[in-house]
Structure formats: C-alpha cells, structure tokens
C-alpha cells in the first residue's frame, strides 16, 4: 500500500504574528496538578490542535488562555489586536428558554438578517435562521456555534471539541470546514480534539497534553488507507492523516510521568 508523505504548505507560519501565548501555566485543583508548566503559542493563520486523553487539562488550558480561569503560576500573553471567537465544549440550551438561531446569533453582536444569513452560509448551515435552537441536530448545533463565533469577525478561533455530537463522516467535514475558514479569514485556530486521527490533516501544529506538554510539533504523515476512503468518501479521506510522533515517556495510572526505560509490570 503506497503511503504518501506530504508536508502541509505553511506560508510564513513560523514568522506570522503570535496571537496568544501561554508560558509556564501551572494550575492545581484540590491539591492535584491540572496544568504543569504548560507552554503554547498560536500564530495568525495557523491551526494548533490540542490532543490528549480525558482529564488531561485541555479544556482547563483553553479556559486559562481565554481568561475564564486564573492560573496559579505562569502568564498568558495576548496580542493587542486579538478578537476571540469561542466554541465551548458541551453546549445545550435549556428547554425552558425559547430561542431561535437568529436571536442566538444576536447575542454575540447585533447584526442584520443578511449578515446572519451570510455567516450561516459560510458554515454550511443555511436556512436555519428561524429555527428553534432546540430543534437542531448535533452537527447543526456545532455549525451554529461556529457561526456565532464568526459573527464577531474574530482573528483567533478557539474551538473546544467542535465535532462532539456529530457522526464520523460529519466530523471530517467539520474539520475541513474549519480549515477553509482559516484559509479564507487568515485567523489563528486553537482546536481541542481527543480524536488522534481525524484532525491531523487540517492542522499545522499538534500539542499533545497530559497535564504537561508531552510533545508538540508538525503532523507528519498522511494516510490514504483504502478503508478510510471507503468509510468517509475520497474528499473526506484526503483530509485524514495520522500523526506520527514519539514519546520519551509514558504515564502511570495517576498520570505521573514514567520514563520509557523504566520496567513496567503490566
């Protein structure tokens, strides 16, 4: 089976302006370390994907970067021009609160119906404007959330698991959409995912987090496995890749770092 290796084109990614950076971020909760000297950087036009197991501190890191939570130590540096568009994890409107998509978009910024139509068009969810937020499918909710983030014309998108509640084929589509939005708007994107395989083709930098940064770097290999093609169709499959990287340590049952050379009994 031929494996084609390809480096994604990254026009001046390394020289682009840093939009947001966290340095030495450390946070404890109930005596347990949640973040341990975490450093991260997102540049304009760059997609940075944060991966890691459940409880790795991905959402906490994002909240600290957004200023929603204060770190015990470390600093967050934001460029003066930064305007954030945020898609939070776990989003549901309480059924007791009636809300249309149109009113929901209004909350980010008062905008005309034409503007709302345009942004819904951009995220591939046209004709939802008059719909009730309670009548949306998982994929539609994620697209509407994306639209709300875009209404503010952000230059930094922060997306916490933007494909949750979406079926597998739809997930690949959403990641492709995020890549297109980045191309069109030249914004930086910080993306959280726990899916190791799906995100990689649409990402420039990968940060593997497990309370501390285990490793970070460029995604390297693109897989064109026939089974992927069969599952997702050719276009989606071309967005698929896996991220080959090397760990210099593993994690014990409590998440503590164990050198790879240490003998383990399992």
């Amino acid at each position: 089976m031929p494996i084609r290796l390809r480096r994604r084109p990254q026009p001046d990614a390394a020289s682009a302006e840093v939009l947001i950076a966290g340095r030495g971020l450390t946070l404890e909760a109930q005596g347990q370390p949640v973040l341990d000297h975490v450093g991260i950087e997102v540049r304009r036009g760059e997609i940075v994907t944060l991966i890691g197991p459940n409880g790795a501190g991905k959402t906490t890191l994002v909240k600290v970067l957004l200023g929603l939570q204060r770190p015990d130590r470390g600093v967050v540096e934001k460029a003066a021009c930064v305007r954030v568009g945020y898609v939070p994890q776990r989003f549901a409107v309480d059924p007791v609160l009636p809300l249309t998509v149109s009113r929901f978009l209004d909350l980010a910024r008062r905008c005309s119906p034409a503007e709302k139509e345009a942004v819904l068009e951009e995220v591939g969810a046209p004709a939802l404007l008059a719909r009730s937020m309670h009548a949306l499918s998982g994929g539609e909710i994620q697209r509407v959330l994306l639209a709300r983030a875009l209404v503010r014309d952000p230059n930094l998108l922060v997306l916490d698991e933007p494909v949750q509640g979406v079926d597998y084929a739809g997930q690949a589509e959403l990641y492709a959409l995020i890549a297109r939005i980045r191309d069109r708007r030249r914004c930086g994107v910080l993306l959280i995912s726990h899916d190791l395989h799906l995100v990689m083709a649409a990402t420039d930098q990968v940060v593997c987090l497990n309370r501390h940064v285990c490793c970070s770097g460029l995604p390297e290999a693109v897989s064109r496995h026939p089974e992927y093609v069969a599952l997702f169709g050719r276009r989606a499959a071309s967005e698929l890749a896996f991220y080959s990287h090397r760990h210099d340590h593993r994690h014990g049952p409590d998440g503590e770092v164990v050198p790879l050379t240490a003998p383990h009994s399992i």
Binding site: K63, L66, G67, L68, V84, Y86, P88, F91, V93, L97, L99, F104, D106, L107, A108, R148, R152, V158
Partner: peptide, 17 residues
C-alpha cells in the same frame, strides 16, 4: 437584557466574548 441573556445561555461563552 442582552448580556444577562448571554450569560444565562452559556456563562463561559459570554465571558469569552
């Protein structure tokens, strides 16, 4: 009204905005 509605629907999203 608008900010209150925004934090009622999703506190963190409103705060980030």
């Amino acid at each position: 009204w608008r900010p209150l509605l925004a934090i009622t629907i999703h506190r963190d999203l409103a705060a980030a905005e």
